[in-house]
């Protein structure tokens, strides 16, 4: 499965700065898109592939920090590289606490920016991958019958077959059959794999 190309979204109200950033990303072979305001970015659909946001802090109407808040409230987890012409430490701290990848005071070197953007894209990619794995694990768990699910929950907590049988008031043999079935449905051969899959599914 080929992954969609990574996308850098640049949000800065200063056309001169925006243009120069887009140009740098283009020269670096990165796909990039510019937005004049936070609202313009919100109006765009969420990129399908890995993406990151290069976001100016000071903008009229919705500021960069405001946009970060709006995205978090909407349950979105874009990786954000803040850029600012007059940043101070409290502002930086606030941004980083809220999950920003980086906070770069203007003017910054190309390497600083590109490193930050690459890190952000990598995080985005990882996050996408995790999302995909989780989706698979959850889908598999969803195929279990209610009784199989009960057995599954007990197996991953480390209960022995006879303990489970005693719990349900059934025979050990019945538990063994159900356990084999759910292992097959989950596509694993060992308890260790099963535990791992459960963890992936439960990850936030």
């Amino acid at each position: 499965m080929s992954e969609p190309a990574p996308l850098v979204c640049v949000v800065d109200d200063d056309a001169m700065v925006r243009k120069s950033l887009l140009r740098l990303f283009k020269a670096e072979g990165l796909e990039a898109e510019g937005f004049e305001s936070a609202q313009d970015y919100l109006d765009r659909a969420l990129p399908a592939g890995p993406s990151c946001l290069v976001l100016d802090v000071h903008m009229p109407e919705l500021s960069g920090l405001d946009l970060q808040q709006v995205l978090a409230d909407g349950g979105r987890d874009e990786q954000i590289v803040f850029i600012t012409g007059q940043g101070d430490i409290p502002m930086c701290a606030r941004a980083m606490r809220a999950g920003a990848t980086d906070f770069l005071p203007k003017p910054f070197s190309d390497m600083e920016l590109l490193t930050a953007v690459r890190r952000a894209l990598e995080r985005s990619r990882t996050r996408l991958r995790n999302h995909a794995e989780q989706a698979v694990a959850r889908a598999r768990i969803a195929t279990l019958s209610p009784r199989e699910h009960q057995v599954f929950e007990r197996v991953i907590t480390g209960m022995m077959n006879k303990e489970i049988a005693a719990d349900f008031g059934t025979s050990i043999k019945t538990v063994k059959i159900q356990r084999a079935k759910l292992m097959a449905k989950m596509g694993v051969v060992s308890v260790a794999e099963l535990v791992n899959l459960a963890q992936v599914a439960q990850r936030q």
Partner: peptide, 22 residues
Amino acid sequence: SLAHELNQPLTAIVTNASAAQR
């Protein structure tokens, strides 16, 4: 504010120069 006002064009200059080198 004035620092910001200066940093904007400086950022554009540095970034554009890096792009041109590439």
